[in-house]
Every structure is written in C-alpha cells, then in structure tokens.
Design a protein around this nucleic acid. Sequence first.
DNA 1: TTGACATTTCGCGAAATAGCTAATAAGCGT
DNA 2: ACGCTTATTAGCTATTTCGCGAAATGTCAA
Lengths: 101, 101
Amino acid sequence: MARIQLKPVHFKAQAQVFKALGHPGRLLIVDELSRGERCVCDLAALVGSEMPTVSRHLSILKNAGIVDDDKRGTQVFYRLMTPCVMNFFKCVSAVRNREGA
Amino acid sequence: MARIQLKPVHFKAQAQVFKALGHPGRLLIVDELSRGERCVCDLAALVGSEMPTVSRHLSILKNAGIVDDDKRGTQVFYRLMTPCVMNFFKCVSAVRNREGA
DNA sequence: TTGACATTTCGCGAAATAGCTAATAAGCGT
DNA sequence: ACGCTTATTAGCTATTTCGCGAAATGTCAA
C-alpha cells in the first residue's frame, strides 16, 4: 500500500486547487463540464450570474489546472482537464452524509 | 459506468468541504491526521501558528465533517473521519503536475 | 472600417476569511 | 480552593474574495 506523503512545499499549490473547488457556482460549472465542453455563455446561463462573474470563476478554475479553454471564433469553450476531480464528489458526499446534514 | 449526478441543492454543502481543505495549514493538519490522531498542541507546533488559530482551523474541518474530536482529560484529540479525503491528494497532484507548476 | 457579438479586464463596495491577543472554560494535581 | 495546563471563544484589524457594471479586447461579417 503506497503511502501518500505530501511535501509541505506543495501544500500551497494543492490548497489552490481545493480553494478553486470551494465555491458552489464553480462546483456547478465543473459538474456541467463533466458532461462535455461548454462556452462561457452557456455556463453563465447555467449558474445564473453575469458573464464577467462566470469568466472570473473560469479563470480561477483554469489557473488551478482544473479546466482548460479553447477559443473558436468569438466564443471560448471550456473543458474539464482532470476527470478524477469528479471522484471527489463521491467522497465529499460520504463526508456530508456521515452527519445527517 | 455510473454517472455521477450532483443535486444543485447540495453544491453549497459540498463547496464547504472543499473550502475547508482550501488552506495550506488545514491541508497540513489533514495530512498529519492521516497518520493518526493528534492533540491540538501537537498540531499547533506542526503548523507553527498560535493555538487559537489552529483551534479555529480544526473547528472548520470538524464543521465540514472532515475530522472529529475526542476530549480526554485536558487535551482534545482530533482524528480524520473520512480517509477517502486522502485520495484527493493524488488527483490534485495530477492536476498540478499537468502544468509544470 | 463599422457594427454586432462573446469574452475578458478593471474598479468598486460588500462580505467573508485569517491570524493575533485577551478573555473564558474546563480538567487535573495539590 | 488554588494554580497550572489545554483548549475554545470573543474582539479586533488586515487581507482576500465575490459579484456587479463599465470599459477594453478580439473575432467575424458586411
């Protein structure tokens, strides 16, 4: 059983990934992107915020390495980079269910 | 292949778990707790912050359902509730490595 | 080039977060 | 009860994050 040993130096970078996921709207975006690439306008409609706000969320996700973008014409399509992120949700659900909340 | 379908209602609760992990010091704490229970004073020494600060971090982790505490005498021992949280780190490392950062 | 559209960047005020010190609570030994 | 130790809570300030509207950027089509 391989021991997972974290190097302290990397905690800050790792925290950035978790921080990027620590927002309901961004979680909604990641969930949506797990079903395929979407343009910013689609995602803005999905989360119900203004486009500048969603664009900022996407830049945070991209900066964390969770998504990547692909400009095609006037629109920009985002896609999920690391599918394993979706596995988080199963564990997180387990965390939540443990305490009837 | 089971589809992971998230209910929007739960995004806020899920985000709380990620937010709790989105801090270098708390990540360090979780990593340490993966090797066994620790008292607050041990963890304070580990992260190098004042005890009130660490106590607050622990309450955030507890509130998110990630850790639980056990008072024994004058000290309080914390332990990791959901080991699957550690699996996050593998994926997060993959996220980070993808971009030479 | 002008106009329309999609997206990003900027600047702001409001809200949340982080960390400290001081104060409070609670357990243990004497 | 008293003092000592451990931990949490409260109060405060500094920093960060959030979400908006306005402005800037970029692309395509006419």
